[in-house]
Simulated scan of single mutants.
Amino acid sequence: MSAVAPAAAPVTVIGLGPMGAAMAEALLAEGHEVTVWNRTPARAEPLVAKGARLAESVAAALGANELVILSLTDYDAMDALLKPVAGALAGRTVVNLSSDTPERTREGARWVTAAGAEFLAGGVTTPPSGIGDPENTYTFYSGPRDAFDRRRSTLEVLTRADYQGEDPGRAALMYQIGMTMFWTSMLSYWQAIALADAHGLKAADVLSHARETFASLDMFTSFYAERVDADHHEGDVDRLSMGTASVEHVLHTMRDAGVDPTLPQAVVDLFRRGMAAGHGNDSFSSLLGLVKAAK
Rank of each mutant, 00 (worst) to 15 (best):
V4M: 13
A5Y: 03
A7E: 14
A8K: 11
P10G: 03
P10T: 01
P10V: 00
V11Y: 00
V11F: 00
V13D: 06
I14V: 11
L16F: 05
M19V: 04
A21T: 13
A24Y: 04
A24F: 02
A26D: 06
L28R: 02
A29I: 01
E30P: 00
N38K: 06
R39E: 01
R39A: 00
T40F: 04
P41E: 04
R43T: 05
A44C: 04
A44L: 04
E45I: 06
E45G: 10
E45D: 15
A49D: 11
A49Q: 13
G51S: 04
R53Y: 05
A59K: 11
A59H: 07
G63H: 07
G63M: 08
E66T: 10
E66C: 01
L70N: 09
S71T: 03
L72S: 08
A80Q: 14
A80W: 07
L82V: 01
K83Y: 08
A86H: 11
A90R: 13
T93W: 03
V94F: 04
S98Q: 05
S98H: 07
P102M: 06
E103H: 10
E103N: 11
R104P: 01
E107I: 04
A109Q: 02
A109C: 01
A109K: 01
W111A: 07
W111I: 03
T113M: 09
T113H: 05
A115L: 00
F119P: 01
L120P: 03
L120C: 02
G122E: 08
G122H: 05
V124H: 02
P127C: 01
P127K: 06
S129L: 05
D133Q: 12
S142C: 03
S142F: 02
A147C: 05
D149S: 09
R150F: 00
R152D: 00
V157D: 00
L158A: 02
Y163A: 06
G165T: 08
G169W: 10
A171N: 07
A172P: 08
A172S: 14
M174Q: 13
G178H: 10
T180K: 04
W183E: 09
S185H: 12
M186Q: 13
Y189D: 08
W190E: 15
A192Q: 12
I193M: 14
L195V: 12
H199M: 07
A204I: 06
A204T: 14
D205Y: 07
L207T: 14
H209D: 14
H209W: 14
T213W: 13
F214D: 07
A215V: 07
S216Y: 13
L217A: 10
L217S: 12
L217F: 13
D218Y: 12
M219R: 14
T221W: 14
T221M: 15
S222K: 15
Y224A: 13
A225T: 13
E226D: 15
E226S: 13
R227T: 07
A230K: 12
A230V: 05
H232I: 01
D236R: 07
R239P: 03
S241K: 12
S241P: 02
S241D: 15
G243T: 10
S246Y: 12
E248F: 02
V250L: 15
H252W: 09
M254P: 00
P261W: 08
T262R: 13
T262S: 14
V267E: 09
V268Y: 06
L270G: 11
L270P: 11
G274A: 09
D282I: 05
F284H: 15
L290A: 11
V291A: 09
K295S: 14
